[in-house]
Write a protein that binds this DNA or RNA. Structure first.
Length: 311
DNA sequence: ATCGTTTGACCCCAC
DNA sequence: TGTGGGGTCAAACGA
Protein backbone atom coordinates (compact mmCIF):
# COMPACT_ATOMS: atom_id res chain seq x y z
CA UNK A 1 0.00 0.00 0.00
CA UNK A 2 1.47 3.27 -1.06
CA UNK A 3 -0.33 5.32 1.50
CA UNK A 4 1.34 3.46 4.30
CA UNK A 5 4.46 5.47 3.69
CA UNK A 6 3.66 9.07 3.97
CA UNK A 7 5.50 12.21 4.73
CA UNK A 8 3.81 15.25 6.13
CA UNK A 9 4.73 17.51 3.29
CA UNK A 10 1.59 19.43 2.52
CA UNK A 11 1.47 22.62 0.54
CA UNK A 12 -1.65 24.70 0.51
CA UNK A 13 -1.87 27.13 -2.31
CA UNK A 14 -4.55 29.73 -1.77
CA UNK A 15 -5.52 30.74 -5.26
CA UNK A 16 -9.02 31.87 -4.65
CA UNK A 17 -10.78 35.12 -4.23
CA UNK A 18 -12.47 36.16 -1.01
CA UNK A 19 -15.93 34.75 -0.95
CA UNK A 20 -17.28 37.62 1.09
CA UNK A 21 -17.57 40.77 -0.85
CA UNK A 22 -17.39 43.99 1.07
CA UNK A 23 -20.60 45.92 0.56
CA UNK A 24 -20.50 48.61 -2.07
CA UNK A 25 -22.62 51.59 -1.02
CA UNK A 26 -23.45 52.56 -4.53
CA UNK A 27 -24.48 49.06 -5.45
CA UNK A 28 -26.27 47.92 -2.34
CA UNK A 29 -28.59 50.89 -2.39
CA UNK A 30 -31.67 50.26 -4.39
CA UNK A 31 -31.11 46.51 -4.70
CA UNK A 32 -34.17 45.07 -3.16
CA UNK A 33 -33.59 41.63 -4.57
CA UNK A 34 -30.16 40.34 -5.42
CA UNK A 35 -29.70 40.15 -9.19
CA UNK A 36 -27.71 37.40 -10.84
CA UNK A 37 -24.18 38.63 -10.38
CA UNK A 38 -22.76 36.65 -13.26
CA UNK A 39 -25.19 38.15 -15.71
CA UNK A 40 -24.49 41.57 -14.26
CA UNK A 41 -20.83 41.04 -14.85
CA UNK A 42 -21.47 40.03 -18.41
CA UNK A 43 -23.64 43.08 -19.02
CA UNK A 44 -21.06 45.30 -17.45
CA UNK A 45 -18.22 43.73 -19.36
CA UNK A 46 -20.00 44.52 -22.60
CA UNK A 47 -19.84 48.21 -21.83
CA UNK A 48 -16.17 48.56 -20.83
CA UNK A 49 -13.71 50.34 -23.05
CA UNK A 50 -11.17 48.65 -25.24
CA UNK A 51 -8.31 49.82 -23.01
CA UNK A 52 -9.92 48.32 -19.96
CA UNK A 53 -10.54 45.14 -21.82
CA UNK A 54 -6.92 44.95 -22.89
CA UNK A 55 -5.70 45.48 -19.35
CA UNK A 56 -7.98 42.80 -18.04
CA UNK A 57 -7.01 40.49 -20.84
CA UNK A 58 -3.34 41.03 -20.09
CA UNK A 59 -3.91 40.26 -16.43
CA UNK A 60 -5.87 37.19 -17.30
CA UNK A 61 -3.13 36.01 -19.62
CA UNK A 62 -0.55 36.60 -16.94
CA UNK A 63 -2.52 34.65 -14.37
CA UNK A 64 -3.13 31.85 -16.82
CA UNK A 65 0.57 31.64 -17.48
CA UNK A 66 1.31 31.47 -13.78
CA UNK A 67 -1.29 28.77 -13.36
CA UNK A 68 0.20 26.87 -16.25
CA UNK A 69 3.68 26.93 -14.71
CA UNK A 70 2.32 25.82 -11.36
CA UNK A 71 0.40 23.01 -12.96
CA UNK A 72 3.47 21.84 -14.80
CA UNK A 73 5.47 21.84 -11.59
CA UNK A 74 2.98 19.62 -9.79
CA UNK A 75 2.61 17.26 -12.75
CA UNK A 76 6.34 16.80 -13.04
CA UNK A 77 6.58 16.12 -9.36
CA UNK A 78 3.88 13.53 -9.48
CA UNK A 79 5.28 11.72 -12.50
CA UNK A 80 8.68 11.57 -10.89
CA UNK A 81 7.23 10.02 -7.75
CA UNK A 82 5.31 7.51 -9.82
CA UNK A 83 8.48 6.62 -11.68
CA UNK A 84 10.32 6.10 -8.41
CA UNK A 85 7.49 3.98 -7.17
CA UNK A 86 7.69 1.79 -10.24
CA UNK A 87 11.41 1.31 -9.74
CA UNK A 88 10.97 0.57 -6.07
CA UNK A 89 8.35 -2.02 -6.85
CA UNK A 90 10.70 -4.05 -8.99
CA UNK A 91 12.21 -7.16 -7.47
CA UNK A 92 15.31 -6.38 -5.52
CA UNK A 93 18.20 -8.79 -5.24
CA UNK A 94 18.39 -8.36 -1.51
CA UNK A 95 14.69 -8.76 -0.88
CA UNK A 96 14.59 -12.52 -1.28
CA UNK A 97 15.68 -13.09 2.25
CA UNK A 98 15.38 -16.39 3.95
CA UNK A 99 12.95 -16.39 6.82
CA UNK A 100 15.53 -18.10 8.95
CA UNK A 101 18.20 -15.49 8.43
CA UNK A 102 16.51 -12.53 10.00
CA UNK A 103 19.64 -10.66 10.94
CA UNK A 104 21.39 -11.22 7.64
CA UNK A 105 18.40 -10.07 5.67
CA UNK A 106 18.24 -6.84 7.60
CA UNK A 107 21.88 -6.10 7.03
CA UNK A 108 21.77 -6.86 3.34
CA UNK A 109 18.73 -4.66 2.99
CA UNK A 110 20.50 -1.78 4.66
CA UNK A 111 23.54 -2.17 2.48
CA UNK A 112 21.59 -2.32 -0.73
CA UNK A 113 19.60 0.72 0.11
CA UNK A 114 22.44 2.82 1.33
CA UNK A 115 23.85 2.77 -2.14
CA UNK A 116 20.70 4.32 -3.51
CA UNK A 117 20.68 6.96 -0.85
CA UNK A 118 24.28 7.88 -1.39
CA UNK A 119 23.96 8.04 -5.11
CA UNK A 120 21.12 10.49 -4.89
CA UNK A 121 22.68 12.53 -2.15
CA UNK A 122 24.18 14.98 -4.59
CA UNK A 123 20.92 16.29 -5.90
CA UNK A 124 18.65 16.63 -2.95
CA UNK A 125 18.08 16.78 0.72
CA UNK A 126 15.57 13.98 0.95
CA UNK A 127 15.81 10.60 -0.63
CA UNK A 128 13.94 7.39 -0.16
CA UNK A 129 13.75 3.79 -1.15
CA UNK A 130 11.91 0.79 0.07
CA UNK A 131 11.95 -2.96 -0.22
CA UNK A 132 9.71 -5.77 0.86
CA UNK A 133 11.14 -8.59 2.90
CA UNK A 134 9.62 -11.87 4.00
CA UNK A 135 9.21 -12.24 7.72
CA UNK A 136 8.12 -15.41 9.50
CA UNK A 137 5.09 -15.25 11.71
CA UNK A 138 3.89 -17.53 14.45
CA UNK A 139 1.87 -19.80 12.19
CA UNK A 140 4.90 -20.66 10.11
CA UNK A 141 3.93 -18.64 7.07
CA UNK A 142 5.72 -15.62 5.76
CA UNK A 143 4.41 -12.10 5.96
CA UNK A 144 5.58 -9.27 3.72
CA UNK A 145 7.13 -6.45 5.66
CA UNK A 146 7.68 -3.23 3.85
CA UNK A 147 10.97 -1.60 4.72
CA UNK A 148 11.61 1.93 3.64
CA UNK A 149 14.72 3.98 4.04
CA UNK A 150 14.57 7.76 4.07
CA UNK A 151 17.54 10.09 4.25
CA UNK A 152 16.97 13.61 5.45
CA UNK A 153 19.51 16.37 5.46
CA UNK A 154 19.49 18.27 8.73
CA UNK A 155 21.47 20.89 10.54
CA UNK A 156 24.71 19.21 11.67
CA UNK A 157 24.40 20.94 15.02
CA UNK A 158 21.01 19.36 15.55
CA UNK A 159 21.64 16.39 17.80
CA UNK A 160 18.05 15.22 18.02
CA UNK A 161 17.24 12.08 16.08
CA UNK A 162 13.87 13.33 15.02
CA UNK A 163 12.52 12.87 11.52
CA UNK A 164 9.23 14.67 11.02
CA UNK A 165 7.06 12.44 8.89
CA UNK A 166 3.57 13.20 10.09
CA UNK A 167 3.22 10.24 12.39
CA UNK A 168 3.54 10.10 16.12
CA UNK A 169 6.46 8.04 17.37
CA UNK A 170 7.44 6.79 20.78
CA UNK A 171 11.08 6.17 21.42
CA UNK A 172 11.77 2.89 23.11
CA UNK A 173 15.50 2.48 22.80
CA UNK A 174 18.80 3.88 21.72
CA UNK A 175 21.93 2.00 20.85
CA UNK A 176 25.41 2.75 19.61
CA UNK A 177 26.18 0.41 16.76
CA UNK A 178 29.52 -0.88 15.74
CA UNK A 179 29.83 0.66 12.30
CA UNK A 180 28.58 4.11 13.22
CA UNK A 181 29.71 6.35 16.10
CA UNK A 182 26.32 8.04 16.15
CA UNK A 183 23.65 6.38 18.28
CA UNK A 184 20.70 4.70 16.64
CA UNK A 185 17.27 5.55 18.03
CA UNK A 186 14.37 3.09 17.96
CA UNK A 187 10.81 4.30 17.63
CA UNK A 188 7.39 2.70 17.59
CA UNK A 189 4.29 4.23 16.09
CA UNK A 190 2.48 5.86 18.99
CA UNK A 191 -0.66 6.82 17.14
CA UNK A 192 -2.28 3.39 17.43
CA UNK A 193 -1.21 0.82 20.04
CA UNK A 194 -1.70 -2.01 17.58
CA UNK A 195 0.30 -0.39 14.80
CA UNK A 196 3.29 -2.61 14.02
CA UNK A 197 5.42 0.05 12.37
CA UNK A 198 8.86 0.70 13.78
CA UNK A 199 11.39 3.29 12.85
CA UNK A 200 15.15 3.43 13.30
CA UNK A 201 16.90 6.76 13.01
CA UNK A 202 20.63 7.23 12.84
CA UNK A 203 23.02 9.78 11.48
CA UNK A 204 24.82 8.72 8.37
CA UNK A 205 28.32 7.43 9.03
CA UNK A 206 29.61 9.28 5.97
CA UNK A 207 27.77 12.53 6.44
CA UNK A 208 26.69 13.54 9.92
CA UNK A 209 24.30 16.09 8.47
CA UNK A 210 22.19 13.31 7.01
CA UNK A 211 19.65 11.44 9.10
CA UNK A 212 18.85 7.95 7.89
CA UNK A 213 15.44 6.71 8.94
CA UNK A 214 14.47 3.10 8.34
CA UNK A 215 10.79 2.24 8.54
CA UNK A 216 9.62 -1.33 9.03
CA UNK A 217 6.06 -2.44 8.50
CA UNK A 218 2.94 -0.68 7.40
CA UNK A 219 0.66 1.57 9.36
CA UNK A 220 -2.75 0.03 10.04
CA UNK A 221 -4.35 3.40 10.60
CA UNK A 222 -4.74 6.62 8.64
CA UNK A 223 -2.10 9.27 8.88
CA UNK A 224 -2.78 11.67 11.75
CA UNK A 225 -2.50 14.70 9.46
CA UNK A 226 -6.01 15.23 8.28
CA UNK A 227 -5.92 15.45 4.50
CA UNK A 228 -7.93 12.43 3.50
CA UNK A 229 -11.31 14.08 3.53
CA UNK A 230 -10.52 16.21 0.54
CA UNK A 231 -11.50 14.92 -2.89
CA UNK A 232 -8.91 13.49 -5.21
CA UNK A 233 -8.67 14.80 -8.72
CA UNK A 234 -8.03 12.60 -11.72
CA UNK A 235 -5.93 13.39 -14.76
CA UNK A 236 -5.42 11.57 -18.02
CA UNK A 237 -2.14 10.23 -16.73
CA UNK A 238 -3.50 9.23 -13.35
CA UNK A 239 -4.35 10.84 -10.08
CA UNK A 240 -2.39 13.92 -9.14
CA UNK A 241 -1.69 14.26 -5.41
CA UNK A 242 -3.59 17.45 -5.10
CA UNK A 243 -7.10 18.35 -4.25
CA UNK A 244 -9.22 21.41 -4.68
CA UNK A 245 -11.78 22.53 -2.18
CA UNK A 246 -13.88 25.61 -1.84
CA UNK A 247 -14.81 26.78 1.59
CA UNK A 248 -15.65 29.96 3.40
CA UNK A 249 -12.15 31.31 3.00
CA UNK A 250 -12.08 30.75 -0.73
CA UNK A 251 -10.92 28.09 -3.14
CA UNK A 252 -7.93 26.15 -1.90
CA UNK A 253 -5.60 23.85 -3.78
CA UNK A 254 -3.93 21.33 -1.53
CA UNK A 255 -0.81 19.78 -2.97
CA UNK A 256 -0.68 16.58 -0.99
CA UNK A 257 2.81 15.15 -1.09
CA UNK A 258 2.04 12.82 1.77
CA UNK A 259 0.63 10.27 -0.62
CA UNK A 260 3.92 9.63 -2.28
CA UNK A 261 6.35 6.93 -1.44
CA UNK A 262 9.40 9.11 -1.55
CA UNK A 263 10.22 12.57 -0.38
CA UNK A 264 10.38 15.04 -3.22
CA UNK A 265 13.57 16.67 -4.22
CA UNK A 266 13.12 20.42 -4.34
CA UNK A 267 15.22 20.90 -7.43
CA UNK A 268 13.17 18.32 -9.23
CA UNK A 269 10.01 19.96 -8.01
CA UNK A 270 11.06 23.21 -9.61
CA UNK A 271 11.91 21.49 -12.87
CA UNK A 272 8.72 19.54 -12.90
CA UNK A 273 6.51 22.49 -12.20
CA UNK A 274 7.89 24.09 -15.33
CA UNK A 275 6.64 21.31 -17.56
CA UNK A 276 3.75 22.15 -19.90
CA UNK A 277 2.12 18.76 -19.42
CA UNK A 278 1.81 19.24 -15.72
CA UNK A 279 0.51 22.75 -15.86
CA UNK A 280 -2.00 21.84 -18.48
CA UNK A 281 -3.22 19.03 -16.31
CA UNK A 282 -3.56 21.22 -13.26
CA UNK A 283 -5.29 24.00 -15.13
CA UNK A 284 -7.77 21.46 -16.42
CA UNK A 285 -8.50 20.29 -12.93
CA UNK A 286 -8.78 23.79 -11.58
CA UNK A 287 -11.06 24.88 -14.38
CA UNK A 288 -13.25 21.82 -13.97
CA UNK A 289 -13.66 22.29 -10.26
CA UNK A 290 -14.01 26.04 -10.28
CA UNK A 291 -16.45 26.31 -13.15
CA UNK A 292 -18.66 23.69 -11.63
CA UNK A 293 -18.95 25.64 -8.42
CA UNK A 294 -21.69 28.21 -8.56
CA UNK A 295 -20.42 30.11 -5.53
CA UNK A 296 -17.05 30.54 -7.11
CA UNK A 297 -18.61 31.78 -10.33
CA UNK A 298 -20.59 34.32 -8.39
CA UNK A 299 -17.57 35.41 -6.40
CA UNK A 300 -15.56 35.78 -9.59
CA UNK A 301 -18.25 37.87 -11.17
CA UNK A 302 -18.40 40.02 -8.05
CA UNK A 303 -14.65 40.52 -8.13
CA UNK A 304 -14.82 41.57 -11.77
CA UNK A 305 -17.56 44.03 -10.92
CA UNK A 306 -15.41 45.57 -8.22
CA UNK A 307 -12.66 46.17 -10.74
CA UNK A 308 -14.99 47.98 -13.07
CA UNK A 309 -16.02 51.63 -12.72
CA UNK A 310 -19.21 52.14 -10.82
CA UNK A 311 -22.27 52.09 -12.94
C1' DA B 1 -0.30 11.83 38.46
C1' DT B 2 0.72 11.18 33.79
C1' DC B 3 3.38 10.69 29.84
C1' DG B 4 7.53 10.49 27.19
C1' DT B 5 12.55 9.81 27.30
C1' DT B 6 16.76 7.75 28.92
C1' DT B 7 19.68 3.99 29.69
C1' DG B 8 21.46 -0.25 31.55
C1' DA B 9 20.30 -5.04 31.29
C1' DC B 10 18.70 -8.78 28.90
C1' DC B 11 17.48 -11.72 24.85
C1' DC B 12 18.14 -13.55 20.37
C1' DC B 13 20.68 -14.57 16.44
C1' DA B 14 24.65 -15.09 13.37
C1' DC B 15 29.27 -16.32 13.14
C1' DT C 1 29.28 -23.74 22.17
C1' DG C 2 31.09 -19.19 23.14
C1' DT C 3 31.12 -14.50 21.68
C1' DG C 4 29.69 -10.21 19.77
C1' DG C 5 26.24 -7.19 18.05
C1' DG C 6 21.57 -5.62 17.23
C1' DG C 7 17.06 -5.16 19.09
C1' DT C 8 13.94 -4.82 22.99
C1' DC C 9 12.49 -4.35 27.76
C1' DA C 10 11.55 -1.89 31.76
C1' DA C 11 12.83 0.84 35.74
C1' DA C 12 14.30 5.42 36.66
C1' DC C 13 13.93 10.00 35.68
C1' DG C 14 12.27 14.50 34.15
C1' DA C 15 8.88 17.72 32.31
Amino acid sequence: MDTAWCSPVCLDLMVGLPMVREPSPGRSAGMGTRPDIASLACDRAASITNDEAKVLEAKLTQMSEENRRLAEMIAYLYRDQMARHTLDGEPHASTAASPTSKKRSRESMDTSNSGDANSSKKIGTVEAGHVDVQSPVSDGTCRRIKIKRVCTRIDPSDTSLVVKDGYQWRKYGQKVTRDNPSPRAYFRCAFAPSCPVKKKVQRSAEDSSVLEATYEGEHNHPQPTNTSELPRCATPSGPVPCSISINSSGPTITLDLTKNEAQPDLNKVCREVASPEFQGSLVEQMARVLTSDKKFTEALAAAILRKLPDY
